[in-house]
Design a protein around this nucleic acid. Structure first.
Lengths: 221, 221
DNA sequence: ATGGACATGTAATTTGTTACATGATTGC
DNA sequence: GCAATCATGTAACAAATTACATGTCCAT
């Protein structure tokens, strides 16, 4: 198979890995100073993690917290009557911190995965109305601008805080990433326009040469 | 919950949507001229789709093809004795083409999802060895360069072909995307270096001011 | 008193993966 | 003859989602 997928996952024993990335992400959330509830974790993931890694469903966060506790990587305590609401707060343990550090230092990082529904539609553009397509790209641009504002907020919150320099770097990366997402979309808009209006301006100077009729089974391309 | 997730998925009836994006992606693969086998589809997805949307496992492709056929969106035929190998080739039907066009024109595109394991580790950098972290970023850069070469190949294969202009646009977007991934990584490398070596050069001039000790529950940041 | 945010969880279901099993054909 | 690629599928499982159920606290 052409694409090298992730490592074969040794058939026996539970190495210090053996947990899905989501579990490590949740444990990572817990690795910053302070205790927090599942609910808080979800909000934080929505506001920050999601920009470079994805925010799990709240029900999954609760499930991962239970698993982490079962492994001894986290402890929880129910709030006593001193606190208003009854809730369960989690904290990382030394074992959890060690396991997380081991995972973070581990070898295979794995390739980033991008699922871009807009691109899927552009790719299928031959079936769509050109104007509708450009409209969708414009909506994407608007959505991206809104996200950019959110990451900048998150970054502002993280700035000036000690021991938050790495989250800051991740958020700075996210800001730049969204900025580039914007220019990527603009460029694609130009490409899309150049399709209907093949004026020499957009270097769409493919001279219709070698117009091979798309034969059966185009051997992928 | 803060993050607006996808639409509530109306409880009754099968609208022209109601299929996971993967099914549409597979049907999309089929929407280009020619018939092909599941195996060919997988290779094509690895070589092209994966750069902007992800390549399903081969077993899932077979499963989706069966589902699509069950819905009348595709037809299949076993190769007769005239062909060397016994295989099953699929083709899109008119109903499938119509359904796909309806989906492509549909309203909600949904936000792109990025899962970037490297960023997860950078975010957790306080637990890791700084040199090891930079090393991982460098590996990412090498991997990205290799991918860039692959997309350029795919683009070269698609160029000059008629009725492939939209896939071309998607691939051009992917080329630019990977190029920007490269500069993003370089910039992050600088950020990471600036952390250990806070010489004024890297504008890391945060004056340590307002060194709020990270209090309990930092209200996400 | 009512709606919204806080808070936690269960159950059913879907999506997707890996491992396994099988066999034909092609090129060396 | 042997390995690689072509080709198709099943089964077991893991990951993750949505829908549902329940209840509290706070502000208007």
């Amino acid at each position: 198979m052409a694409a090298p997928r992730s490592a074969p996952r040794s058939t026996s024993s539970q190495q210090p890995d053996e947990l899905p990335p989501t579990a490590w992400a949740v444990l990572g959330l817990l690795s910053f100073p302070g205790e927090r509830t599942g609910y808080e974790l979800k909000k934080w993931a929505d506001a920050s993690l999601r920009f470079f890694y994805w925010s799990p469903a709240i029900s999954q966060i609760y499930a991962e917290l239970r698993r982490l506790e079962g492994l001894g990587y986290a402890t929880s305590r129910r709030s006593g009557p001193e606190e208003p609401r009854t809730k369960r707060t989690y904290a990382i343990t030394e074992a959890g911190r060690a396991a997380l550090a081991g995972w973070a230092g581990g070898a295979d990082v794995g390739p980033p995965v991008l699922k871009h529904p807009l691109l899927l539609r552009v790719w299928l553009g031959h079936l769509a109305d050109p104007d509708g397509l450009r409209e969708q790209v414009n909506e994407h641009i608007a959505r991206t601008r809104a996200e950019l504002a959110q990451v900048r907020e998150a970054l502002a919150r993280a700035e000036g805080l000690e021991s938050w320099s790495h989250p800051q770097i991740a958020l700075r990366w996210s800001v730049r990433r969204l900025e580039s997402e914007l220019s990527l979309a603009e460029a694609m808009l130009d490409d899309l326009t150049g399709l209907c209006d093949p004026s020499g301006l957009t270097d769409n100077t493919a001279p219709t040469a070698s117009g091979q009729p798309p034969e059966d089974s185009p051997t992928h391309g």
